[in-house]
């Protein structure tokens, strides 16, 4: 029994780095979802498509000899364009937001396969991806490189988002998401703000896709399955862990932390000694419920203390 616990514990320790790496990469997706769902208040379902788009574009470009940095840039732009089109469908064609996102997701499915010339996957094994290049050059193990690179990207993205939403344009976008009527009454062209906001969030999803494809050395048409659920779960976990009314940059960091915690919980579920792998989803759900209830109990406890004080 003790041996079992020991093995499990060592297994968990060993897997924390990979969980953090996964959490950081998928955290960038969660930031994109945060911008559309929370800041812009638009239920944009297209991230499943744009994440895969980012991965596929990067994979095809790098496998065909394009410089990886340029490939990442092109991936982000293609994601932004897709997001802008979704925004156009919603604002100018008056298609409900959810449907616009779903339509874009469908369209991108075909587009992604076209980009892969009809194949359903593109391999990046031994290709000059950012991760492989840095790993070879610095002679550091891939799992460590993953964490460093993704953490850098996450920090850059948070800084960029924080700066952007403090500008006049960014504040106008926040106002649009917070109170559409007021924004229009203050002379804000809310249509263009929605389009820009969705372009940004989908550009981030594509960036995440690009990084994930490099991490997995593979881009497939189904690599983004369930992305939106993963993104939303990360956001909600982050919001529960941290107290309300934090400064904006802290909220963004909370999203990344939520994503890492989500992955660590999955990893924990995988290491449960008596479970089969297909129990993973059930165990993840149970662990998440436990995590949520801890925070709720904590809050109730604080309220009780405040009453007695």
């Amino acid at each position: 029994m003790l041996n079992l616990l020991n093995v499990t514990f060592m297994g968990i320790l060993r897997l924390i780095p990979s969980g953090i790496g996964e959490g950081l990469a998928w955290g960038i997706l969660a930031l994109g979802v945060y911008i559309s769902f929370r800041v812009l208040d638009v239920a944009d379902m297209s991230v499943d498509g744009t994440l895969a788009l980012g991965g596929v574009v990067t994979a095809v470009l790098v496998a065909n000899g394009t410089n990886v940095v340029l490939a990442i840039l092109i991936s982000v732009i293609s994601g932004a364009v897709a997001g802008a089109i979704t925004g156009l469908m919603h604002t100018k064609l008056k298609i409900p937001a959810i449907l616009s996102g779903i339509l874009m997701m469908f369209a991108l499915y075909s587009v992604n396969i076209h980009i892969m010339s009809g194949k359903s996957n593109v391999s990046l094994l031994k290709q000059p991806t950012l991760l492989n290049l840095l790993s070879d050059w610095l002679q550091i193990d891939r799992s460590v490189i993953n964490i460093i690179v993704f953490a850098l990207f996450a920090a850059l993205v948070i800084a960029a988002i924080y700066w952007f939403f403090g500008t006049k344009l960014g504040s106008a976008i926040r106002a649009t998401g917070c109170n559409l009527q007021m924004a229009r009454a203050q002379g804000i062209d809310t249509d263009s703000k929605v389009i820009i906001g969705l372009a940004i969030s989908n550009g981030l999803a594509a960036l995440a896709g690009s990084l994930i494809a490099q991490k997995d050395s593979n881009a497939t048409v189904d690599m983004a399955s369930g992305a939106i659920v993963i993104g939303l779960a990360s956001i909600v976990i982050g919001e529960l862990i941290f107290k309300k009314n934090l400064p904006f940059w802290a909220k963004l960091a909370g999203v990344i932390v939520g994503s890492i915690i989500y992955r660590l919980i999955i990893m924990l579920a995988l290491q449960m000694p008596f479970a089969e792998t297909y129990d993973m989803k059930l165990i993840t759900a149970i662990l998440l419920v436990l995590a949520m209830s801890v925070t709720v109990i904590k809050k109730r406890h604080h309220k009780k203390e405040a009453k007695h004080a």
Binding site: G166, T167, L169, S171, C178, N179, M182, Q186
Partner: peptide
Amino acid sequence: GTAADMQIEENLAIASQRGQRRGLGWN
């Protein structure tokens, strides 16, 4: 009339920019 999630000064800044182009300058 006001954006709930934003600060007083942010709301007022938005009102003061009414009619102007909102670019990448600091709010």
